[in-house]
Design a protein around this nucleic acid. Structure first.
Length: 168
DNA sequence: AAGCCCATCCGAA
DNA sequence: TTCGGATGGGCTT
């Protein structure tokens, strides 16, 4: 069973989903329908239950974090559902500080698999937990921002917000 | 087990 | 600036 709540935030509609082990998805989209559809696609083998944001154990904290882009991430339990390789990549992502960026190839080096650049990019794209697992801080080595599951416009917005607001 | 997809990178034209 | 090949993990058949 996976529960989820949806509400508005500065970047559009915000979805926070959680299992009994912690947050398993954070999504951004233009409409609630898009969020629900992708949630269903991602967790086709689970039953889903919509919860009012007011009654969610996580929604308000995640929402607050997204509204204050450069603050340090809240210490909430995450349910990282993926392969060993993906979890290695995701944990490395969580070490990137706000305002900093890393290239896909540097990230590949960091996890000790320097030639697996595209595999690392795929693992970033497989991340379902927006902003809490900061895959938006990974950019291409040619200076382009690269792709983003929730829209490259949002990736650029996130990076701009973190770059312009000091962390203390 | 074999094929295809991919949010990359680098060198060559 | 574009283009092709190398590349490795994940998913489907």
């Amino acid at each position: 069973m996976i529960c989820y709540s949806i509400g508005s935030c500065a970047l559009g509609q915000l979805l926070v989903a959680w299992s009994d082990r912690g947050i398993c998805a954070v999504g951004l989209a233009d409409t609630p329908d898009q969020l629900i559809l992708s949630l269903q696609a991602n967790f086709a083998d689970h039953s889903l239950q919509n919860i009012d944001p007011v009654d969610s154990p996580y929604f308000s904290t995640v929402h607050r974090f997204i509204e204050a882009p450069s603050s340090s991430p809240p210490d909430l339990p995450l349910d990282l559902m993926g392969t060993e390789f993906q979890r290695r990549v995701w944990r490395a992502l969580m070490e990137i500080q706000p305002g900093n960026t890393v290239t896909y190839s540097a990230l590949a080096q960091k996890i000790g698999n320097p030639s697996a650049v595209r595999a690392v990019a795929n693992a970033c794209g497989a991340n379902r937990i927006a902003t809490l697992v900061p895959c938006h801080r990974v950019v291409r080595s040619d200076g382009a921002t690269g792709g983003y599951r929730w829209g490259s416009a949002r990736k650029q917005t996130l990076l701009a917000r973190e770059a312009t607001t000091p962390d203390h």
